[in-house]
Amino acid sequence: MIRVEHIKKSFGDTEVLKGISFTFLKGKTNLIIGKSGAGKTVLLKLLVGLLKPTSGKIWYDDVDFTKLDQEAVRRIRMQVGMLFQGSALFDSMTVEENIRFPMDMFTKKTMKEKRKRVDYCLERVNLEGVNDRYPSETSGGMQKRVGIARAIVLEPKYLFCDEPNSGLDPKTSIVIDELIASITEENNITTVINTHDMNSVMEIGENIALLHDGHLAWEGSKEEVLKSGNELLHDFIFASPFLQKLKESAD
């Protein structure tokens, strides 16, 4: 479980996050949604410690993440996996070397054990047999899956995904969403996804935070989205004329 309390973040005179409190639940896919510029990416970067909050607290279970020294932050980070928007795979390494990198760095496993784990992770993301390919030799969807495999290789307690569906076709997006949701459930981990993909919201949104202009505008689950009377939420979810017509016909 991760909890943010009254979190604020400013860049110069611009206040991007204006006091957000929210709990990201363990074993659930937690979604941060909102329009561009709402503060989603800033919140995600605060959660993983790439940025420091101006004020407020971030709790990883019962540990105050904002009060930790560099060494303690590093220890927490070893329990964190992250999928980046652009996958952030190391170009000079093969798929296997990319996935193996965290193990090479932090574990004393033998090469045989590491290879076994790499194969398991690749199998888990339905991507067997690409071990020796370089990232440039794989498609966008494959790179995302390799990114997920690398993120889960050390069996993290917390998984963060920044726009996992960006640049992917709708079908591949669904595959990635389902993959993340099933990994979350299987391993009972806290997953936080930053997205503006409406399919993701309706498919895997178990615990959703809608950000608007640096504030938490709404929170709930995918089941509560349709029942909610929140205008900001409806403006956001049914932004496209197609979905609006669909909603009207459903009403």
């Binding site: 993983v48 410690g49 590093r74 220890r75 980070r77 952030a88 965290p102 760095m105």
Partner: peptide
């Protein structure tokens, strides 16, 4: 720029 450094930081690498 390609977030490789961020990715390593989040893994816990100095």
């Amino acid at each position: 720029q390609k977030e490789h450094i961020d990715a390593m930081e989040i893994m816990g690498v100095n």
